[in-house]
């Protein structure tokens, strides 16, 4: 259960950071509504950010294991 709470916290933090980064990137000048190009940028961006998180996570774990000399 602790593990699943930690997981929830992780997902929440991931979403929070994804929103900040994608707002930064896709909405340079906030107008009266979210334009369709801003929307498509935002959906691309959130999928990329999640994929980046996964890639960074697996690279990090691989590296830790390598440093510890553990063979997979």
């Amino acid at each position: 259960q602790v593990s699943s709470e930690a997981n929830m916290a992780n997902v929440r933090l991931l979403i929070e950071k994804l929103q900040e980064n994608c707002f930064q990137k896709c909405v340079p000048k906030p107008g009266g509504s979210l334009s369709s190009s801003e929307q498509s940028c935002a959906t691309s961006c959130m999928e990329k950010y999640m994929a980046a998180w996964n890639k960074v996570n697996s690279s990090y774990i691989d590296r830790l294991r390598q440093e510890q000399g553990v063979q997979m």
Binding site: A6, K17, A52
Partner: peptide, 17 residues
């Protein structure tokens, strides 16, 4: 390992993004 890795991953993702 995975849990603490996840915490570090948030920081690293920000840097590498």
């Amino acid at each position: 390992e995975t849990d603490s890795a996840a915490t570090e991953t948030h920081q690293l993702t920000q840097v590498c993004w």
